[in-house]
């Protein structure tokens, strides 16, 4: 889940670099605005904490009814966040393709009442059910992350995590990953092109594996050197080991009600696990 979270945040970050960005209008608050949706008015801290609690209550749930409610909540949240339909669906589809494998494989690996026999292997209803449950969980959590957290601009995310007392090192790792992923990716492409220019073709042989090993090794060495230069450049501009957190955060009445609402939703999801027998 954590991986998906980072992956999505990074991807969204890269998407933000649209070819025609809005000119800076001289208002500092404009730097920190995501979009004009209802969700964007809620304090980023409340959104992060709400999403984490929601994710935990969903991951720990196993009832079909509870998970359907969770998905419904995520969907509502996504609507409130005015997520772009096509973009979001594409990302969900990428994840659900992976989930499809689970649904195909789990019936054959979970013991239970068989409903299909393929090449002598028996597929069980219980396995299929388990696959569906996992798919529902994943979709509910990821949609909630899209709606709640991933539309946050990088600097706001950093400031909010700082005020939530998340370790500075982790925040810096996250922010730097966002910034330098493209640089590292470009470097990989450059090295890869240079290899191809010398007639390298990836084949299933020792030479190929060794060369790719060298490529990855060189990437690590270069990244390390680059990180040293980046820190040096930051020091030159007065950096002393801590980011100045500058996004103005203000807690409002609305944020309180948002937290109450999220708590109620999470309680409802957890409670639904124990009623109805599903």
């Amino acid at each position: 889940m954590l991986f998906l979270f980072f992956y999505e945040v990074i991807r969204l970050f890269l998407q933000k670099s649209s070819p025609n960005p809005q000119p800076y209008n001289g208002n500092v608050n404009a730097l920190f605005k995501d979009n004009d949706s209802l969700v964007s008015k809620i304090d980023p801290r409340a959104r992060i904490v709400g999403t984490v609690i929601f994710a935990f209550s969903v991951v720990l749930s196993d009832g079909l009814l509870a998970l359907c409610l969770a998905l419904l909540c995520s969907f509502t949240m996504a609507c409130c966040a005015k997520l772009k339909l096509v973009g979001t669906l594409k990302k969900m589809a990428a994840m659900d393709a992976f989930m499809l494998y689970l649904i195909l494989i789990l019936p054959f690996s979970v013991p239970g009442d068989s409903f299909i026999t393929l090449f002598g292997f028996e597929g069980s209803w219980q396995g299929l059910f388990k696959g569906l449950i996992i798919t529902l969980k994943a979709n509910a959590v990821v949609l909630m992350i899209f709606a709640g957290v991933s539309i946050l601009p990088a600097n706001v995310l950093g400031s909010a995590l700082t005020s939530l007392k998340v370790s500075h090192k982790l925040i810096q790792l996250l922010l730097f990953t966002m910034r330098y992923l493209k640089v590292i990716g470009d470097e990989f492409q450059r090295l890869r092109r240079a290899m191809r220019a010398r007639a390298f073709v990836l084949r299933f042989n020792w030479h190929s594996w060794k060369s790719i090993g060298y490529l990855i090794g060189m990437m690590i060495v270069r990244s390390m050197h680059r990180s040293e230069r980046v820190v040096a450049a930051m020091k030159c501009r007065g950096y002393q080991g801590q980011f100045v957190s500058y996004h103005p955060l203000s807690w409002q009445v609305m944020d309180f009600w948002y937290c109450v609402l999220m708590s109620l939703v999470c309680s409802a999801i957890i409670t639904l696990n124990f009623v109805g027998g599903l």
Partner: peptide, 25 residues
């Protein structure tokens, strides 16, 4: 000091934030 490779020096998501980094420090 202005570094040889600008990519070493610019690390913020937007230009304005990169410029603001020094004064904030």
């Amino acid at each position: 000091l202005v570094f040889q490779d600008p990519d070493d020096q610019l690390f913020c998501p937007s230009v304005i934030e990169d410029v603001m980094f020094g004064p904030l420090n």
